[in-house]
């Protein structure tokens, strides 16, 4: 079954890349290991958003809320209960997906912009609760210094842990992307009305997509806690949600790996431009405008288009 979708040609560079990522930590400075790990977490988050945004065509305006819910769930289980660690690992994504189910259940009834608006209000509601419920979440201060088991004690250990989880998630997401469900979802993105006419219950598929995407967002949230050992309300704030929205567009939201590239670029910009100037959002804004004017398909999407023109992708000839 795997042979069907992973052809050797595209598989080799991915494996090489993965091996490079595996051997990097001992040989590069600690700071870079940390930055790459941040890129991993952000990539997963952006790609989970893209499942509904780029592949599903839904205006998921407040995806960050589910990321935050995953992170908070994990953090609260670790700090407020005596439950074992793995319960937290499982609970983070599951709670995020449940919240996704609840939010999505209301949202899929609405069209486009109203969908986005309702989601912003529901997401903001979650943010407001986390922000104000001092006794549970420590409100504005957040929770810091969350204890991790010894297996995840060093930065390199958490790096590897995050990398492996990311790899598993990517394979899962790719399978879904290429599955009948994924194809149907993309058909819904292109033309929901026609989809209904060929017998697809659009809302139910959209809801399923939201639940799956929010599950992965929850995984990203858990990984964030593993890396940073803290949670704070900004994780749930809408500004972050818009930022990941941008990452998807930056990388190319109709592609599979594009958002990952977008996330990496954004994190790199924030980190390295941030060293020279505190006005990095200004630069992000300028880049975004350039993108809108010159690369509306995103960076990755642009390269794929180029490849198609030269006819070098075997993707098209296979069928």
């Amino acid at each position: 079954m795997f042979r069907n979708i992973f052809n050797l040609k595209s598989f080799v560079p991915i494996v090489v890349f993965f091996i490079v990522l595996l051997i990097l930590p001992p040989i590069i400075p600690r700071f870079y290991t940390y930055i790459i790990a941040v890129m991993f977490v952000t990539s997963l988050l952006a790609m989970s958003l893209n499942m509904v945004l780029g592949h599903g065509g839904m205006f998921q305006f407040h995806h960050g809320a589910f990321y935050g819910v995953g992170a908070y769930t994990f953090a609260l289980i670790l700090t407020k209960t005596t439950l074992p660690m793995w319960v937290g690992f499982a609970a983070g994504p599951i709670v995020a997906a449940l919240v996704g189910l609840l939010v999505g259940w209301f949202c899929v009834r609405l069209n486009r912009l109203y969908f986005g608006m309702l989601q912003i209000s529901l997401g903001s509601l979650i943010w407001a609760i986390a922000f104000r419920w001092y006794s549970l979440t420590s409100g504005d201060d957040g929770i810091h210094g969350i204890p991790m088991p010894s297996i995840l004690s060093s930065l390199n250990c958490s790096y590897y842990f995050i990398l492996i989880v990311l790899a598993i998630c990517l394979v899962g997401m790719y399978l879904i992307f290429k599955s009948p469900f994924g194809t149907t979802l993309q058909a819904i993105r292109d033309n929901p009305q026609r989809c209904e006419a060929v017998g697809v219950n659009v809302r139910r598929h959209q809801l399923a997509a939201i639940v799956i995407a929010t599950f992965f967002a929850g995984v990203a949230g858990v990984l964030f806690v593993v890396l940073e050992r803290s949670v704070f309300p900004d994780l749930l704030f809408w500004v972050l949600s818009l930022e990941i929205f941008i990452m998807c567009l930056l990388g190319g939201w109709f592609t599979f790996l594009g958002p990952m590239l977008g996330a990496a670029i954004t994190v790199a910009l924030r980190t390295f431009v941030g060293i020279y100037t505190e006005y990095w959002t200004l630069i992000l804004g300028v880049i975004l405008i350039l993108l809108i004017f010159f690369l509306p398909e995103g960076v990755f999407g642009y390269f794929i288009e180029k490849f198609k023109e030269r006819g070098t992708t075997d993707m098209l000839e296979e069928k």
Partner: peptide, 15 residues
């Protein structure tokens, strides 16, 4: 796919 009720099939490749 819709006709054969396979649209919720998540893991086997559409190809």
């Amino acid at each position: 796919l819709s006709h054969q009720k396979k649209t919720f099939n998540l893991f086997s490749p559409a190809k």
